[in-house]
């Protein structure tokens, strides 16, 4: 029987906080996998998304990546693992396919966040930037990327949650991290451990999301985020004419938590 007391007992048992299977180790593993994955995915997705958004060419890359999200993550995990694992010996046989799948899953939200962020930049601002003699690179770095920040960050939040969740599932193909508590607990019928692991995973996801929400405060210009003296209201009025429903769906589906959770 799982009660608050049994779960509490698990969390207060010093044995669960030590060694290779201890909470700190597993938590760090989970963070490590998430960090590595996001770093690789950012390096791939941001330049591509920026280029597609800036040039308006090869939009099918974004559409394609979005469509690929329909592939069940569990299936992708198993399929890639079965294809890639034989190529590696040692523990890499589990880590490499897992990271590969996590990267694949993180790319679509980052790609479409970067792309739609840049694509949604006010055409007049872009026109003015070119008209005053900015090079393509200057238009991209000084105008488009700063203006794309909100949508890029909601893509990043979406990707981060996706990676944390899928890294948990990847324990089923022997990846370390918090998912071990869930998968190992299942194997040994240790439901208390499963619940404890689930709580840790949920907490990690919530904290990660809050951290990224805070990041948004620092990374986004107040002129865009609308913090401070009534900017938001004015901005909504002004951009109201262009604010079609499709665009708002795009945002909301990219990151259901796109808005301020604070």
């Amino acid at each position: 029987m799982i009660t608050f007391a049994t779960v509490w007992a698990w969390f207060t048992d010093p044995a669960n906080w030590q060694g290779a299977d201890g909470v700190p180790t597993r938590m760090l593993e989970h963070l490590k996998f998430t960090g590595i994955t996001l770093a690789i995915a950012l390096v791939i997705a941001v330049p591509i998304g920026a280029w597609v958004g800036h040039s308006g060419r090869m939009r099918w890359l974004v559409t394609g990546a979005n469509a690929a999200r329909a592939i069940p993550t569990l299936g992708l995990l198993f399929a890639v693992s079965m294809l890639v694992s034989p190529l590696f010996t040692s523990s890499l046989a589990f880590t490499v396919p897992s990271i590969a799948v996590l990267v694949l899953l993180a790319i679509p939200p980052l790609l479409s966040g970067t792309y739609s962020g840049i694509e949604s930049v006010d055409p007049a601002a872009r026109d003015a930037a070119r008209g005053m003699g900015m090079s393509d690179w200057e238009v991209l770095t000084r105008v488009e990327l700063p203006c794309a920040m909100p949508l890029f960050l909601s893509g990043l939040r979406s990707a981060t949650l996706q990676v944390i969740a899928t890294a948990t599932i990847a324990a089923s193909i022997s990846l370390g991290g918090l998912g071990r508590y869930l998968i190992d607990g299942l194997a040994s019928q240790d439901y208390v451990q499963m619940v404890a692991g689930s709580i840790l995973v949920a907490l990690l996801a919530l904290v990660a999301d809050l951290v990224l929400a805070l990041l948004e405060r620092f990374a986004v210009s107040p002129g865009i985020s609308g913090r401070g003296q009534g900017v938001a209201r004015r901005r909504r009025l002004r951009f109201g004419r262009g604010g079609d429903a499709a665009a708002s769906v795009k945002n909301s589906t990219d990151a259901p938590l796109g808005a301020d959770p604070a």
């Binding site: 007049a124 930037a129 008209g131 105008v143 920040m149 002129g223």
Partner: peptide
Amino acid sequence: RRGIGYVIQHAGLFPHR
């Protein structure tokens, strides 16, 4: 372009600045 002032209909101000 830097030697030509350019003013357009919706001003095209940079919202982040």
